[in-house]
């Protein structure tokens, strides 16, 4: 999955101007030559901070993203679906782990990152602040949310920062399973009973617009993308990726016999692409500011897990310390 936050929380272009010009020139020449930047290499502070923010937001999104789908693990309607869902939610935990690991190469600890998430200082993808109300939501998340994530993640595999790029390659390989199981789940519902078709349509109605918002604000309102693009952290703009997603998804919905909940949606033959209606960015801003339907619940669930696991983590450390002492003695 993915975080939309990288544009709104901008790299600081001014800070880049204060770096040693010779080092900065050499750094940018390496970027231009498509060389990867590795953890111990010199990098501008703004590059480091942008990456820490972006990769950790991505990691937080994976971890928080376990919750809405995890909500259905105990209620999956067949043993095979239960297995698939557990494997999928487990993968998200794995993706979170890869990404925290990549972030830590930039000189920040897991504990600090978790603290930023739990205190509310760090953002995660707003999509996970929507509730999963029916089993069809599990399908819609796989199909739409993971579908949108893949659009964004494939270019990140070529990100200039080596550890992030490598983590993304690993993630993209696994993410394709996520999207396909979601579409397969929707297909079963769409070909099922009237009641099953109804929850499938309802899920599409609720997840369509938030999925489009996952790509972040329109380019016209996202003035900070430039430096991220120049440093090859980001390769495409929000609107480019959103358009690609729409053009892929509309025919998929048609195949399911489901209706995209957008009366203004039309095909523009001249441009060879779909045109969607107005996106309600005020809803997006509300959810980002913490007023989505589940913001509080999601964060509370993470805090509870962290707090109730504290004695376990401490015990493991204490045990290891005793043994280290015993071994040294």
């Amino acid at each position: 999955m993915y975080t939309q936050g990288l544009n709104e929380l901008a790299a600081r272009p001014l800070a880049a101007m204060q770096e040693d010009p010779a080092l900065l020139r050499r750094f940018e020449a390496r970027i231009d030559a498509e060389e990867k930047i590795e953890p111990k290499d010199w990098m501008p502070d703004a590059y480091r901070q942008t990456l820490i923010r972006q990769i950790s937001q991505h990691a937080h999104s994976e971890i928080v993203g376990m919750l809405p789908e995890g909500n259905w693990i105990t209620r999956a309607p067949s043993l095979l679906r239960k297995s698939i869902l557990i494997a999928k939610v487990q993968d998200e935990g794995g993706h979170g782990a890869y990404l925290y690991s990549a972030t830590e190469t930039l000189g920040i600890s897991r504990a600090e990152l978790i603290e930023q998430l739990l205190s509310g200082a760090a953002k995660y993808s707003s999509i996970f602040n929507y509730p999963t109300l029916t089993w069809a939501d599990v399908g819609a998340i796989g199909w739409l949310v993971d579908g949108a994530a893949i659009m964004n993640q494939i270019p990140l595999c070529r990100c200039s920062y080596g550890p992030y790029s490598r983590a993304m390659i690993r993630i993209c390989k696994e993410e394709s399973f996520h999207q396909r199981q979601g579409y397969d789940l929707m297909l079963k519902l769409a070909r099922g009973s009237a009641a099953q078709r109804a929850i499938a349509q309802d899920a599409l109605n609720r997840w369509w617009w938030p999925s489009l918002m996952m790509f972040g604000p329109p380019d016209t309102a996202s003035p900070h993308t430039a430096l991220s693009v120049r440093w090859k952290i980001k390769r495409f703009t929000n609107d480019e990726l959103r358009q690609k997603f729409v053009d892929f998804t509309v025919p998929q919905a048609r195949f399911l016999g489901l209706e995209i909940p957008d009366p203004a949606l039309r095909w523009d033959a001249e441009r060879g692409q779909h045109v969607v209606g107005e996106i309600d960015w005020s809803e997006f801003q509300d959810v980002v500011r913490g007023n989505g339907p589940c913001n509080r619940d999601r964060l509370q669930a993470r805090r509870d897990a962290h707090e109730s696991g504290r004695w376990v983590r401490e015990a493991a450390l204490a045990h290891a310390a005793k043994h280290a002492r015993a071994a040294a003695a």
């Binding site: 376990m66 693990i73 239960k82 297995s83 487990q90 935990g93 782990a97 696991g309 376990v312």
Partner: peptide, 25 residues
């Protein structure tokens, strides 16, 4: 399965999930 997403550490979420998947199989 009830644990997944709520374990004491992310790596333990993965461990418990693996055991759950084996048992489900």
């Amino acid at each position: 399965g009830e644990w997944i997403g709520h374990a004491p550490a992310i790596e333990e979420d993965l461990g418990l999930a693996n055991t759950a998947l084996d048992l489900l199989g």
